[in-house]
Each structure stands twice: as structure tokens, then as C-alpha cells.
Nucleic acid binder design. Structure first.
Lengths: 123, 123
DNA sequence: TTCATATTCAACCATTTGGTTAAATATAAA
DNA sequence: TTTATATTTAACCAAATGGTTGAATATGAA
């Protein structure tokens, strides 16, 4: 890490990896369901496992994927681990999506106003 | 497809698959960059390929992933294919994220107001 | 018709993913 | 100490992913 441009590159790449992890984590119904559960209240690993027909080892892996994406944080309390959402990562993904949504709808607005102009000229 | 509950299941699963595809499509930097390019204007396949050090066959596959997610539509014009964004799918993902963001921040509001109440009682 | 351009398809390959089972770890309860 | 509970780790496996190359397809230009 030598100069400002290295730092910039680090930031961009870091952000990119983050988005890769976040979107990847959310691309799975089981994990989205887990997010849904944690949105209501924090959950232990076994609570998270309960609705699914899956081994605890499998569940453990899913949680790890959510953690890698920074979507979930864990506090160890004795032998039980308590998982809770970290919405900062959710916002990061929303920001990305919202940006392109807006970008695109602006294009439509532009198109519409161009059509209006064209229509006016006709008369 | 026999009754209303079948239809409902179809809708939920369809929606679920959709989200799987959308989030999966966005979990890749190359594809996100392509979305970025198409947000500015529609692009041919070779235009989309230009910034990347990747075979056209590879690019073609990436576009297919975006199409499966309904993020991109293609109109064939002679021998060139023109790709443009379909923001409906982007919105679908944003909606999902926004919902859980909101859900969570509401929890914080609730917590805050409970703390307020508690504080009031102290006096 | 022949040649060039734009794109996809098919076959292949290494890596990642999403799951399993069996064993290990750490803590709590008897 | 022994036993039960909560969870992870390791090793494994089939399927999916992200890429390649080489051949096929379809259209446009000469």
C-alpha cells in the first residue's frame, strides 16, 4: 500500500469483493429464509436450523457464507452461538441496485421528454 | 395446476427462483460491470465484450446468465444482438432488500422508544 | 458465390458450491 | 467425573460455475 491510488484500488476492490459476497449469499433461498428469521429476532444456530431438512453441518456452512458477506454477526454465549443481522451490508447491496434503477428510470424520463418535444413540433 | 393453492405455490416458487437467478447474476463483477454499461445505453455483444480480457464465448455465457435473471433482454438486428437492461428485475431485488432493511431499522426504532419509556420511568 | 463479421454451441476442464457423514471441541448438567 | 447439548471441522461427493478452444450458424459485403 504505497500511494493514494493504491488505497483507491484497495477500496474499489474491497467493495467489489463485498458485493460479490453479499449477492452470492442472497442467491440462495435457504439463506434468504435465514435472513428473514433473523430480521424478526436474533437466533441461535439450532433455531436457524429448525425449519430446514438439513444437517447442522450444512446449516453451519450457510451461516458462514452469510458471515463472509458481513450480513450476519455472531456472539458466542456459552455453548450456543447467537446470530444477528448486520444491515449495513444489506444497505450496501440496496445502494448498488437503487443506483442502477434510478439511472435507468432517468433514461426513460429523458426519452419521454424527447417524445414530448417531437410531438410538439408536429403541430 | 389444479387449484388456487397450486397457483400460489407456483407464484412463490417462481418468485424465489427469480430472486435466486437475479442475486446470482449480480454476484459477479464482470456481470455487474456489464449492467453498468447497459445502464448508460444499450450495447451489442461485442461492445459488452470490449473492456474484458475474455473470449466472446465467455461473454456470451455471462449475458445468458443475465437473461435467465430477466435482467437483460436482447433484440436481434441482423447479425448483431442488442442487449438492454430490464429494470423490473432490478426492482424486484431492491424490493426484497429494502423490505429487510426497513424491517430491521423498525426494530431499532422500537428499541429506541422502549429505552425512552424506561428512561421516563426512572424520573 | 466467396469472404468477413457477429455470435452461439459443444465439449472440455478446474474450481466452487451445497450438501452429506463421522469425528472433534467446548460448555453445561447430573 | 460422566454424560448430554451446541456447534464446528474434516473429508468426501455430485452438480454448478466460469472459463477455455474449435467448430457451427447466420448475416452482410464484395
Amino acid at each position: 500500500m504505497k500511494n493514494i491510488s493504491d488505497i483507491f484500488n484497495y477500496m474499489v476492490n474491497h467493495n467489489n469483493d463485498n458485493l460479490n459476497y453479499i449477492f452470492h449469499a442472497l442467491a440462495d433461498s435457504t439463506r434468504r429464509e435465514m435472513v428473514h428469521m433473523m430480521a424478526q429476532k436474533e437466533r441461535t444456530v439450532s433455531e436457524l436450523a429448525e425449519p430446514f431438512d438439513m444437517s447442522l453441518a450444512g446449516i453451519s456452512k450457510h451461516i458462514k457464507v452469510l458471515e463472509r458477506a458481513n450480513l450476519v454477526e455472531r456472539s458466542v454465549n456459552g455453548r450456543t452461538h447467537i446470530c444477528h443481522l448486520n444491515t449495513e451490508s444489506l444497505s450496501q447491496a440496496t445502494e448498488w441496485l437503487r443506483f442502477y434503477e434510478k439511472f435507468w428510470s432517468n433514461r426513460f424520463d429523458l426519452l419521454e421528454s424527447e417524445l414530448m418535444k417531437a410531438k410538439k413540433k408536429e403541430h
